[in-house]
């Protein structure tokens, strides 16, 4: 598969993943463009990999982490995600999703990445571990902590049976 073919077919999915990793529409596009530009340089190697998608997603997660590290020393990060409507604007279901998103956005980066890859990308733990460069056990630990926080903050009973 050529680079152009890959971007044409997987580009939208990468941008959507980036929206969830970054929490910012513009930053998501910049992140995706940056990662794909780097992938372009090494495309022959990436295309030969068994799972180019996993490779590129790993680049996305790592680039996002690096970006936030660099950014945190230069710019003041606001606690609130400013680009979303206030809760007063929303109806019941929408307010619930908005509240859940804010809680997810407040999770540590690795925990959020695990939730995104598991619940949005619908990937299994070994694949998530490959993307994050850790073991499946670590993935489950991140997921367990993230879910625990969400249950606690969102008022969900602890015995609801979410997979750990």
């Amino acid at each position: 598969m050529t680079f152009e073919e890959y971007v044409s077919s997987r580009g939208p999915a990468l941008v959507r993943l980036a929206r969830l990793l970054t929490g910012d529409e513009h930053r998501a596009e910049d992140l995706t463009q940056d990662v794909l530009a780097r992938a372009y340089v090494h495309w022959r190697k990436i295309a030969r990999a068994d799972h180019p998608d996993v490779y590129v997603r790993r680049m996305m997660v790592n680039a996002n982490t690096s970006w936030w590290r660099r950014r945190s020393s230069r710019e003041l990060v606001t606690a609130e995600f400013a680009d979303r409507p206030g809760r007063g604007d929303l109806g019941g279901d929408a307010a619930d999703r908005d509240e859940m998103w804010r809680l997810i956005l407040g999770l540590p980066g690795r925990q959020r990445a695990v939730l995104v890859l598991r619940y949005y990308e619908d990937l299994d733990d070994p694949t998530i571990a490959q993307i994050l460069g850790c073991s499946p056990v670590t993935v489950r630990t991140h997921a367990m902590r993230a879910l625990s926080q969400l249950r606690e903050r969102h008022g969900v009973p602890t015995t609801n049976g979410s997979r750990p």
Binding site: F3, G11, L36, V156
Partner: peptide, 30 residues
């Protein structure tokens, strides 16, 4: 809880993507 997480993530990720522009920017940047 799983469903609420999945719904919240889908809503945030949703929205059209300008693939052609993304490709041009990626190739130019590369």
């Amino acid at each position: 809880l799983d469903e609420r997480i999945a719904r919240a993530l889908r809503e945030q990720a949703d929205g059209p993507v300008d693939t052609d522009r993304l490709l041009t920017a990626a190739v130019n940047g590369g």
